[in-house]
Design a protein around this nucleic acid. Structure first.
Lengths: 145, 145
DNA sequence: CTGCTTGCAAAGTGTTTGCAGGCCC
DNA sequence: GGGCCTGCAAACACTTTGCAAGCAG
């Protein structure tokens, strides 16, 4: 919110609405959902504007997006906002390829892999940025037909 | 190739072409590239047919696709084909968010995470299925401006 | 005022689908 | 021959972009 001013970026209704929406939920929202919710706070905001706001805020490091296989990317704040703690520190996302459910996994679980990749390949993994795919427990149970 | 017959699936020019293309390369190919290469072996194959063939073969477990952030999915064989060893056993994919390069990572590197997720959450991770995002060594060097 | 931001519409990319005809088995 | 497979075109979902007008600083 105030982050924008600090970075010499303009504070516009659209950007404020996007930030408010993300700060007001603990879910991962996709662009469509953000558009719908932002519409409430800033009537008339356009889809494209939301995408542009998300891109700008992403560049500033205020928010992060996660690519979900075969559907829309989801966004969430990456830094704590004044008072609000909607911004979960670091976490990855598991997506079930059967039911589509997205499960959060704590960053600590992924740390060993991050370290291994950094050491072995010099690759700086961003565990948040893409969902890890697999089959969740529930769907494995269903699979025994 | 013969896998199709075993599974009571039809062997058509289109499917044969797709399999030949994948067996004839050690790269990860996206749908467009497969269409282009399949065109050589089976002139007239349609884009949609290739997608359908890839879906069918994927269901049979013959090939795997990996979702790459912000661009086309890449496909490769998941089982060894008669004589050909283009099918690397198990491996994940690292994608650099800066330069876009896709790096293979051996399955053994990912095993600890697979086991951890299975134990803790009952989640059966398919490490091949989505690219892991981050910054590769080269781009980290470039970043020191 | 200056120029970054927005709204709008249209284009783009990657993938899927409905339908009629064709080919595998 | 029956039914799965194909070609075609159109639809689809998500995201990006060109342009003129608008508002922030």
């Amino acid at each position: 919110v105030a982050v924008l001013r600090e970075r010499h970026e303009r504070v516009t209704p659209a950007r404020r609405a996007v930030l408010d929406v993300l700060a007001g939920t603990d879910h991962h929202l996709n662009a469509d959902e953000i558009v719908a919710l932002a519409e409430v706070r800033a009537p008339g905001v356009h889809r494209a504007t939301v995408y542009r706001a998300l891109a700008t805020l992403g560049d500033l490091g205020v928010l992060t997006h996660t690519h979900v296989a075969g559907s829309a990317a989801v966004y969430h704040l990456s830094v704590p906002v004044s008072g609000v703690e909607a911004a979960v520190p670091v976490h990855g996302h598991l997506q079930c390829t059967v039911c589509g459910a997205v499960i959060d996994v704590p960053g600590t679980t992924l740390m060993p892999l991050v370290l291994t990749l950094a050491t072995d390949l010099g690759f700086q993994l961003q565990p948040e940025h893409a969902a890890l795919l697999g089959v969740c427990g529930d769907c494995q149970s269903d699979a025994r037909h």
